[in-house]
């Protein structure tokens, strides 16, 4: 570790290529912290948006017209507005209508903080697309399969959980991967509401050291790696789910 720090410090002295995150303890600590926040944000939003997608796709096929309309309204709301606007809307707009709590100084502060609002808005944004993605998988399932399940006495929920969703998931896997990759690339928007994720801490670091190209290079590599890991996992999952004879 010391050797790496010494080498990057030397690189800065001799060439002016300044990777402070490798030799300055303060910058390193906040960069690592930012990376962890980004990982957490990715984890929470991927999980949340997939669950929301599954729920929404079930709601789209519900008997109640009001539930179907509600899901449709939600999709239109979040698919038709830019994610940055949604983040600002939740954080500055909606948040002002919620109750406040007292902090340790005895000052009142909003109930929900930046990280949670960023997660909520990104889950809603990606979730809207996921509903449609799951619908595409569900609608590709032959009616005869669903009718067969009905004939066997499955309820609608049972059919959805045990027949429709497992088959539909296999079909919509590539589209789902695409959307989750996009979701990871949308997480830096959280920096607009001061969530200390990677782009936010990088901005602080390059403001202090004027090493914008170096930090951009690091960000670039880290996002390529993050998306690479996700795509790898999704491909493995896709292969593990393959049903011989389903023709997929």
């Amino acid at each position: 570790m010391n050797l790496i720090a010494a080498w990057f410090s030397h690189l800065n002295d001799t060439t002016g290529i300044n990777f402070t995150v490798f030799y300055d303890p303060f910058d390193r600590a906040r960069f690592v912290q930012g990376f962890l926040v980004t990982l957490e944000l990715c984890g929470v939003t991927i999980t949340g948006s997939v669950m929301l997608g599954i729920l929404g796709a079930w709601g789209q096929g519900a008997a109640s017209i009001w539930l179907r309309r509600l899901v449709q309204f939600y999709i239109q709301m979040f698919r038709n507005t830019p994610p940055l606007v949604q983040v600002y809307f939740f954080y500055f707009g909606l948040s002002a209508l919620l109750p406040e709590v007292k902090n340790s100084l005895g000052m009142s502060q909003p109930l929900i903080g930046g990280f949670v609002w960023a997660s909520i808005s990104l889950i809603c944004f990606a979730g809207a697309f996921n509903v449609e993605i799951f619908r595409s998988g569900i609608e590709a399932i032959p009616h005869s399969t669903i009718e067969a399940a009905e004939a066997l006495g499955f309820t609608r929920l049972q059919t959805y959980r045990q027949v429709v969703l497992p088959l539909g998931l296999r079909i919509c896997m590539p589209a789902l991967t695409n959307n989750l990759v996009n979701l990871i690339k949308t997480t830096p928007l959280a920096y607009a509401i001061a969530v200390p994720e990677l782009l936010y801490v990088s901005n602080q670091i390059w403001s202090d050291n004027e090493n914008v190209p170096e930090m951009m290079l690091l960000l670039f590599i880290i996002y390529i790696a993050l998306v690479g890991v996700l795509v790898f996992i999704m491909h493995r999952w896709e292969r593990a789910l393959r049903v011989p004879g389903l023709g997929l």
Binding site: F92, S95, A96, E100, M107, Q109, P110, A192, I193
Partner: peptide, 16 residues
Amino acid sequence: AFTGVAEALTALRQGR
């Protein structure tokens, strides 16, 4: 830290 003065002042007023 926010991107602009207006956001930071709004956050100050909202108690963030």
